[in-house]
């Protein structure tokens, strides 16, 4: 039973990280930008949902989602587009600045103190399944994750824009030569990553039960580990990396002695360090990539 609980936890946490990692990976793949500000998009999503919580549920969803997408597009247009083509380090610093900007703008508007998150309190109720008492939230998040991951996979695999996105991520010049409009494709990547961020906002805010300006940092950093683990630029790798990180953190929680548990993050980043040095392409090297000369 305990094992089952651990597995469920691992999947749930892993799914959350997988979505973070995908949100980061989508942008990296196409722009070679490690988007630190992705965490703040999650944070903004949490605030949007939380502040609109008094409205009818569907309206909250539509409005907050629209807000997040608009925000992501705004960031792309104002901060990242002018820097396109610069070296990855400049882009990284820029996203760092955007992240800091949004965090502190939130402090300016709503103050630094946490606000309660009250949307859909029903999520906190527990239900009993096979002798396990589980919060409803776990099921909702599991469902959302499956939909989101399958949705992203389908969009990338089946739609013209998705295929174009993958094409541009591999070789921008060839994509252009094939008539791909790169600006549109980049905007599409930001929209997809914003939707993923929104789902994370909903689940994560409900999990921690409050909103704070810096709440996006932790999921970002862990999602970032997952992206590295999967190999920067590989989307299946990013998703897999998310689940691996989820499994590792649940495992560390289970096996580490209590006084070492707080060091989980140190261990995770120690792992990042080792991966970068030993296997810089990540766990999952895309096979087809190797065929390339």
């Amino acid at each position: 039973m305990i094992a089952l609980q651990y597995i469920l936890d691992a999947i749930n946490i892993g799914g959350l990280y997988a979505m973070m990692a995908l949100g980061i990976g989508l942008i990296f793949g196409i722009m070679r930008l490690i988007n630190f500000a992705h965490g703040e998009v999650v944070m903004a999503g949490g605030y949007a949902i939380g502040l609109l919580a008094t409205l009818p549920g569907p309206l909250v969803i539509v409005l907050s989602l629209a807000f997040i997408i608009a925000l992501a597009l705004l960031i792309e247009q104002t901060a990242f587009r002018p820097l396109r083509g610069q070296d990855p380090a400049s882009l990284l610093v820029a996203s760092f600045a955007v992240s800091y900007f949004l965090q502190n703008l939130t402090v300016m508007i709503f103050g630094a103190r946490p606000l309660p998150f009250t949307f859909a309190p029903v999520l906190a109720e527990t239900i009993e399944v096979a002798g396990l008492r589980l919060p409803l939230l776990q099921f909702v998040s599991l469902g959302l994750m499956i939909i989101a991951l399958a949705g992203v996979a389908a969009l990338l695999k089946r739609t013209a824009l998705g295929i174009q996105l993958r094409a541009a991520a591999e070789d921008v010049v060839t994509a252009r030569l094939s008539g791909v409009k790169v600006n549109r494709v980049i905007a599409f990547a930001f929209v997809m990553s914003a939707v993923l961020a929104w789902i994370v906002s909903l689940i994560y805010s409900a999990q921690i039960g409050q909103l704070s300006p810096a709440m996006g940092v932790r999921p970002l950093i862990i999602g970032f580990v997952a992206t590295i683990l999967g190999g920067l630029g590989s989307l299946p790798g990013a998703a897999l990396g998310g689940f691996v990180v989820g499994a590792i953190s649940v495992l560390l929680d289970a096996v580490l002695p209590a006084d070492l548990r707080p060091f989980r993050e140190a261990f995770l980043f120690g792992l990042v360090f080792v991966i970068l040095v030993v296997r810089p392409d990540g766990l999952l090297r895309v096979r087809a990539m190797q065929e390339r000369v």
Partner: peptide, 26 residues
């Protein structure tokens, strides 16, 4: 105007069909 670039520059991480589909954007 369509260009077949030097060294072919096919997109190796995409399937053959996807490579063809991106040519169909117009």
């Amino acid at each position: 105007i369509a260009l077949v670039p030097e060294g072919r520059r096919i997109l190796s991480n995409l399937t053959v069909e996807e490579n063809l589909r991106i040519g169909q954007t117009t």
